[in-house]
């Protein structure tokens, strides 16, 4: 292993493989740039839209089926919707808020889940959520929305006072508590973005590392030992990656629900 490691920088297969985690342009795709921002349909962009398309298509098909006893895709979608409703939305919010906010939280959950999972599709797969800019966008949208509805519902001053000043804290503690609360508020979108990004990146890096072993051992006798082990681990980690994709979507949606609920009822 040490020998393999020291030889790596020269012709490391990891360079090639980790390149799969970086968005890249297709040769056939047009190059779009607006206001200095590259909006070209890179593999990341294509996979974001693929996730969006899958998300909408699957739900569209499921929603059109009206079987009394659900089967197939209708059954899967209804189970997932029920899961999000019961275990995420209604476990945090009251019934009225839950009913109002389920469409938003459900969309967050399913969109992130599909962005997490689409990277597991062989050949075309790229995990958009393994990019910090994608997760940061989602996290900021969620957090800014929570702040916006909090201020709209309670008034900006009341909202921030209730949010930054914990109830029943002695006044003498406030100079300490308010900065802590400000840091806590700033940490919310940051942690939301980094958690999802880091988990999805690590997940795919693991898969690439096992794939890298095969390339490193290629041409040597070690390939006969490394190939089956690497393939076995890749299969196991692919299944694990699907589980992580689901869990991370649950965590993101759950925290979204908490942040929105906190914004609706600040200081509680």
């Amino acid at each position: 292993m040490a020998v393999l490691a020291t030889e790596a920088p020269e012709e490391s297969p990891f360079t090639e493989l980790t390149g799969h985690l970086t968005p890249h342009h297709y040769g056939w795709a047009p190059h779009w740039e607006i206001g200095g921002i590259d909006l070209s349909p890179t593999n990341a962009v294509v996979n974001i839209w693929l996730a969006a398309l899958l998300c909408v298509a699957i739900f569209w098909i499921a929603a059109r089926k009206r079987a009394l006893v659900p089967q197939g895709i209708q059954n899967v979608v209804e189970v997932l919707v029920d899961f999000v409703k019961v275990n995420i939305v209604y476990s945090v919010m009251n019934t009225k808020d839950g009913r109002n906010w389920f469409p938003f939280i459900g969309t967050v959950f399913f969109f992130i889940f599909f962005m997490n999972a689409v990277g597991l599709v062989p050949y075309i797969g790229f995990t958009p959520t393994a990019n910090i800019f994608v997760t940061a966008t989602m996290a900021l949208m969620v957090y800014l929305l929570a702040v916006a509805i909090g201020m709209a519902r309670n008034g900006p001053l009341k909202f921030w006072v209730k949010t930054l000043v914990p109830p029943d804290v002695p006044k003498v503690m406030l100079p300490l508590m308010i900065p802590i609360e400000i840091i806590s508020q700033l940490a919310r979108p940051l942690s939301l973005a980094v958690r999802l990004f880091a988990n999805m990146l690590a997940d795919h890096l693991m898969l690439l590392v096992f794939a890298g072993f095969i390339f490193l051992a290629a041409g040597s006798a070690a390939i006969f030992g490394i190939l089956p082990i690497s393939v076995a681990f890749m299969v196991i980690f692919t299944a694990f990656a699907l589980f992580v994709a689901f869990i991370q979507a649950v965590i993101f949606a759950f925290l979204t629900t908490i942040y929105i609920n906190d914004a609706l009822h600040p200081g509680h």
């Binding site: 968005p23 921002i37 590259d38 909006l39 070209s40 890179t42 990341a44 962009v45 974001i48 839209w49 996730a51 969006a52 998300c55 909408v56 739900f59 569209w60 929603a63 389920f102 469409p103 938003f104 459900g106 969309t107 399913f110 969109f111 958009p128 990019n131 800019f133 994608v134 940061a136 966008t137 989602m138 949208m141």
Partner: peptide, 24 residues
């Protein structure tokens, strides 16, 4: 990758509109 910021936002809002208004 600021392009991804834009596309993520647009894609999410599109999905939100379609799911929240038409599907859910």
């Amino acid at each position: 990758e600021f392009g991804l910021v834009v596309w993520t936002g647009v894609a999410f809002l599109t999905v939100l509109y379609l799911l929240a208004k038409k599907v859910f």
